[in-house]
Write a protein that binds this DNA or RNA. Structure first.
Length: 564
RNA sequence: UGGGGAGUCGCCAAGUUGGUUAAGGCACCGGAUUUUGAUUCCGGCAUGCGUAGGUUCGAAUCCUACCUCCCCAGCCA
């Protein structure tokens, strides 16, 4: 368990007897899919409840029917469960409290603490003042309680058009905190709500709704992001002025930013609607749906949330941290198989034609309990194009003309002849096997290099999708004068036809494998069909101390754009 | 120029009732093992805690001033 300031606050509350348990909530608005930033919040809220043996609610903040949909609400529930968490009791909805919220509003009116305002949006802005100048009281601020009550009831009854009136808290138009300058708490909006349908034409605002919802659920610690810090006085004001005996503590922490991506629902939505990605679940998206489809694991994401910590300082976390968590999890769990994604034909000249030999290979070098499968070999095999070099750089351990290399789980071969096409491209290698090297090292010499391969005759065709970061800039939305779309990486997806070993024939969707020396891959949960159409998504590459070294030639684009 | 926050290694982040050599992770750099240049294993990596002063036997931790960055003027959340 990692200590952070929120735990310290909770520990102090528990020690002082202010609370005997911890009740948190994860309160998304169903207006988009969850992303990695939400995952941090999910892990924080549900994790705290678990660690302190308390409870955590899932509550939808569904107070703006114009933007919300059941598709989003369903996807969010699926994501929270997939991440490995279970909310306390039934799913909660802010709309469950509309009637109670309405009653509390009447209470505020009766106390002279809320009034119906006729100002138009433009007028209200003008009356609000600026950051440095106080606002002015609305001419409607001093209506009588009776008139306010009557007007508010008629608002609810649908007697006024959308936007004609609002209900405002009567606080202080001169407050240096703009959120306290008589904030609107109800607006008239004739929109069909995903749960209450057309039952209401007035909807409560976030600040008013959230604190009361928290209190009604007995939340002890209400965690939110830094931008709501200014709203805390309003959160407290509402609860201090209505008849409710629960007053949760709002605690703010900084949101998560990740290098080379964006975590803004608006921008993610833009990527989807403008077709820059295939959908919310595109494996390049930092959404939970996208990461899942890419092959990221719940355990890996949870570990990531643990490692990045919780604080109040702005932060942009390296993608490498997330990738390290995913690799670490997959390293222990993913069976190893071989696949060739950029094939180069190799003929084993001293291997008898028409003969197939099988050799058993373990699914995991450190976990014999994963079992083994038969790996067939025959006269023609595929190897990776970049495992061969005509003119190798210093330190090269792979195949060269006249050089030797070990075929993983199989023989040592020597490249005797390089076959080129008319354009001079290498199209085939003719190699000979050292028959004495099966399961043993050759005598009198060392063969350092080991490469992966598949038998051409037995290989299965597969579509492999190689994903790279979605943006070329570490902070695509961090440039004031440039649009984030300018930094889209044109090479973020490359689809190749690959050959995989027969053991993958009936792999189920969402199963994850390590393709040896290439990376971790996941059978696509949408398009992969066992036994017929094989589709694998590259989850993350293996660490590659050769490619990152100075001797290795760099790819044409970014370091991550290497084929392997 | 109003209010609210934040500044500890390239990226995160402990530490903040002042007390030995400023945790840990990612990244990076060495080296060992290895039929994945993977994994694993060893070792290295802030005389420094936004800056400048001050208090103190002693300060990242206290005081003063200053600097930089972020958020707020939706009938969004």
């Amino acid at each position: 368990m990692v200590q952070h300031f929120i735990r310290s606050l909770i520990d102090a509350d528990l020690a002082a007897g202010r609370h005997t348990t911890v009740v948190t909530r994860f309160p998304p608005e169903p207006n988009g899919y969850l992303h990695i930033g939400h995952a941090k919040s999910v892990c924080l809220n549900f994790g705290l409840a678990r660690d302190y043996q308390g409870r955590c609610n899932l509550r939808f903040d569904d107070t703006n029917p114009e933007k919300e949909s059941t598709e989003y609400a369903d996807a969010i529930q699926e994501d929270v469960r997939w991440l490995g968490f279970q909310w306390d009791g039934e799913v909660k909805w802010a709309s469950d409290y509309f009637q109670a919220l309405y009653a509390y509003a009447e209470e505020l009116i009766e106390k002279g603490l809320a009034y119906v305002d006729d100002l138009s949006p433009e007028e209200m802005r003008a009356y609000r003042g600026t950051l440095t100048e106080p606002g002015r009281d609305s001419p409607w601020r001093d209506r009588s309680v009776e008139e306010n009550l009557d007007l508010f009831r008629r608002m609810r009854a649908g007697e006024f058009p959308d936007g004609a009136k609002t209900l405002r808290a009567r606080i202080d138009m001169a407050s240096p905190n703009i959120n306290l300058r008589d904030p609107v708490i109800y607006r008239i909006k004739r929109a069909h709500h995903i749960r209450t349908g057309d039952a209401w034409v007035i909807y409560p605002m976030y600040d008013y709704t959230h604190c009361i919802s928290d209190a009604l659920e007995g939340i002890t610690h209400s965690l939110c992001t830094l931008e709501f810090e200014d709203h805390r006085p309003l959160y407290d004001w509402v609860l201090d002025h209505i008849s409710i005996d629960c007053h949760p503590q709002q605690i703010e922490f900084s949101r998560l930013e990740l290098h080379y991506t964006v975590t803004s629902k608006r921008k993610l939505n833009q990527l989807v609607t403008q077709g820059f990605v295939s959908g919310w679940d595109d494996p390049r998206m930092p959404t939970i749906h996208g990461m899942r489809r890419r092959g990221y694991t719940p355990e890996g994401i949870r570990e990531f949330a643990r490692r990045i910590g919780v604080s109040k300082s702005e932060n942009v976390v390296d993608m490498g941290v997330l990738e390290a968590c995913i690799r670490e999890d997959l390293e222990a769990k993913a069976p190893r198989v071989m696949a060739v994604i950029r094939p180069l034909k190799v003929t084993l000249t001293n291997f008898e034609a028409g003969v197939t030999a099988n050799r058993s290979a373990g699914f995991h070098p450190n976990h014999p309990e994963f079992g083994e499968r038969e790996v067939p070999i025959s006269r023609e095999i595929w190897i990776e194009q970049d495992d061969f070099a005509i003119d190798p750089p210093e330190g090269w351990q792979r195949l060269t003309p006249g050089g030797e290399v070990r075929l993983r789980y199989s023989y040592v071969i020597r490249c005797d002849e390089v076959v080129r096409d008319a354009a001079g491209r290498v199209v085939e290698l003719r190699c000979s096997i050292d028959h004495d090297t099966l399961g043993q090292n050759p005598k009198g010499r060392k063969v350092k290099g080991v490469i992966h391969w598949v038998a051409a005759e037995h290989a299965l065709a597969a579509e492999v999708r190689l994903y790279d970061r979605l943006f070329t800039d570490p902070e695509p939305d961090g440039h004031k004068d440039r649009d984030f779309l300018e930094f889209l990486n044109p090479h973020s997806l490359e689809t190749v036809q690959a050959w995989v070993e027969p053991a993958l024939r009936d792999a189920l969707p969402e199963l994850r494998y390590q393709f040896e020396r290439l990376g971790y891959f996941c059978a696509d949960r949408c398009e992969h069909q066992p036994g017929s159409r094989l589709v694998f998504n590259r989850t993350v590459m293996l660490k590659d101390s050769w490619a990152s070294g100075s001797e290795a030639p760099k790819g044409p684009h970014m370091d991550q754009q290497r084929g392997r």
